[in-house]
Design a protein around this nucleic acid. Structure first.
Lengths: 178, 178
DNA sequence: AAGGTTTTTGCAACTGGTTGCAATTAATCG
DNA sequence: CGATTAATTGCAACCAGTTGCAAAAACCTT
């Protein structure tokens, strides 16, 4: 149940409405977590019911915007969870299944799809590089920033990893299917 | 829905019972997919109901062992799916959430957990290296083997990636919390 | 032969994530 | 001012994955 904790983290950095959170997820937490707005709303409601966060309605906004803030109980819960530990996240990647399947059923047009994904990973890497240039052009001074940078670098290297792997897969397909 | 296709791939390589599949998942497909036996049984039943696979009861076995085989419809479905394409798998890793959260709530004992995970990734990498030495000591001749090797290398590099990241995170924590 | 252990399969309940749609309210446009 | 659009929240139904438990059949022990 890490969506909860991702939300608490984001809200501690800055109180926000559900939709703002959804957007922030897209722009800054998305290199290691993602969530739809429904998920976010549901989790916010639950956390409010459990007393981890509070919400106040915002005036001068369309719809019925609510700003959410973390309560002491919420911060406590987040701290507890950080120390809790756990196993590495189980891996589940359809592309790797596809590669293996293509080996078994013979050429089935995987190369196009590999190239399409490659393009997406390139785009993400470029975006992260912009973040890096903007936020970390000089090495971070405080602990929190240093940790944020570690996470960004993890995102960057993750994209590198995929681009490398896709290139390798494409080279193999190319070699055998000329 | 890739569990289905992972199972079809595994069954095309060799017909098997549900439990055998669960074990094979642990030993050889686990570097990019994983599944519990419940999941596997449920999916096998569904696929049988849909006519993608058939099963024959095996004599001389404990319990009511059933061997599953892929039918032509199943192979067709797998081939269709391989060519189908799709976006990269959405990323969801609690450890990255933890790192960021630790930045926000201050030291909360994350380092131990980082070291524990590091150990697990080292173990996995060592295992994959054994697979590599055993199955790919000379470069693979046929297409299917070459693709299997690509997938294994992806697993290996994935472990490398994590070890590197965890080391970096530990270095940061070490620097700021001496 | 009785009783336990292992292998194999499975049900049921739950949690988390996804998709499609709708309701409310404010801002904007003609 | 009325109609349209955008922002914000949410319901409901569904799908996939997880956990805990148990049943059946063979095998193993004493």
């Amino acid at each position: 149940m890490s969506l909860r904790h991702a939300l608490l983290t984001a809200l501690l950095e800055k109180p926000a409405s559900g939709l703002e959170l959804a957007k922030r997820f897209d722009r800054s937490i998305a290199y290691f977590w993602n969530a739809t707005h429904q998920q976010i709303y549901r989790e916010l409601s639950r956390m409010e019911a459990e007393g981890l966060i509070e919400s106040t309605p915002e005036e001068n906004a369309r719809g019925v915007k609510k700003i959410h803030r973390v309560l002491p109980e919420g911060r406590k819960e987040l701290k507890r969870w950080v120390g809790e530990g756990g196993d590495p996240a189980p891996l589940r990647d359809p592309m790797m299944v596809r590669l293996r399947a293509e080996g078994v059923v013979g050429p089935a047009g995987l190369a196009d799809s590999l190239r399409a994904q490659r393009k997406q990973h390139l785009a993400k890497r470029a975006l992260y590089r912009e973040f890096e240039a903007k936020d970390f052009s000089k090495s971070p001074a405080d602990r929190a920033a240093a940790l944020r940078y570690v996470v960004l670098k993890a995102g960057l290297k993750y994209e590198d990893y995929w681009i490398e792997m896709l290139d390798e897969a494409l080279a193999v397909l190319d070699e055998f299917d000329h």
